[in-house]
């Protein structure tokens, strides 16, 4: 009896938490279809006109393109540097290896405001004007971590014995990498990239200090809300940002949790958690 009550209680609790998390998001999505430009309840009518308004707003367009470019470049940088760092840390034993590992992961746990201010003063000091490049550098600091963590976790989990098995069967160098190492890592690399993209696309704090006069999409939303302008458009943009970040995150989760990793580890008798 007690177990049954506890179970029902737990369900209600979880339901409450989920409501708390998702009702505000639901409301925003709903408001995006509000025909009026005043946000009041109940809404006057349903319409998709704000989608069209937002799409044709040059400011929104510019901000969207800047965000997209920053996210793509930051992801590419993170892919190259993050994977390389993961390989290095995994493969070689060198002095300060643990320190390097910690320093790489640190930016993710560091408050964004500190990263932002630090980068801002560094750019000032070096005489680098704030531009797309500085946004990319700012985003790369935390995007690298995501790729690095993903790839390193996969390397630790699968690579040892399987790479040795390939070498044992006569493979080495590029052939081994192409036929065994890379295929086993690919889902980790892709999911790392998707997460990095999502992180970069909706980042506000670091961007505030590295973007200068330009607006990324989140910065534009932030500004509009502070000024109380274009609120219907904000709702539409938020829906867009939501889609562009949630979809990659779900895809990444499926790649690492659903397919890739379990398939990789299930080949051996050891069952790995997570």
């Amino acid at each position: 009896m007690e177990g049954r009550l506890a179970r029902i209680g737990l369900r209600i609790w979880v339901g409450g938490v989920l409501l708390f998390l998702f009702v505000p998001i639901g409301i925003i999505c709903f408001y995006a279809f509000n025909s009026s430009n005043v946000q009041s309840w109940p809404i006057h009518g349903l319409s998709v006109k704000w989608f069209s308004v937002a799409w044709h707003d040059p400011q929104v367009r510019a901000a969207f393109l800047l965000s997209l470019r920053a996210a793509i470049f930051a992801t590419v940088v993170a892919l190259l540097l993050g994977s390389a760092a993961a390989f290095g840390v995994h493969r070689f034993r060198f002095f300060g290896r643990e320190a390097v590992s910690l320093l790489l992961v640190l930016p993710l746990s560091l408050p964004g405001i500190i990263t932002g201010i630090a980068l801002n003063s560094a750019f000032n000091f070096a005489g680098i004007g704030l531009s797309l490049l500085t946004i990319i550098i700012g985003h790369a600091t935390f995007c690298i971590v995501v790729v690095y963590n993903n790839v390193l976790a996969r390397l630790r989990r699968v690579s040892g014995s399987v790479n040795e098995a390939a070498a044992d069967l006569g493979a080495h160098g590029l052939f081994l990498f192409r036929t065994v190492t890379l295929p086993m890592l690919s889902t980790a690399v892709i999911s790392g990239a998707l997460l990095a993209f999502a992180l970069s696309f909706d980042e506000v704090i670091v961007t505030t200090f590295t973007a200068g006069a330009q607006n990324t999409l989140p910065l534009w939303v932030f500004g509009a809300i502070r000024l109380g302008q274009d609120l219907p458009e904000v709702n539409v943009v938020v829906v867009g940002v939501l889609l562009l970040t949630v979809v990659p995150v779900i895809a990444a989760a499926r790649l690492t949790g659903g397919g890739g990793i379990t398939r990789g580890s299930a080949a051996g008798p050891r069952i790995s958690g997570g």
Binding site: V162, D168, A267, G268
Partner: peptide, 20 residues
């Protein structure tokens, strides 16, 4: 000599099959 140029093959304890 490195492993790949030795005429030896191993059956690993955890099998180490290529999962992909």
């Amino acid at each position: 000599k490195p492993p790949y140029s030795r005429d030896v093959n191993t059956v690993f304890q955890d099998y180490a099959l290529f999962p992909h």
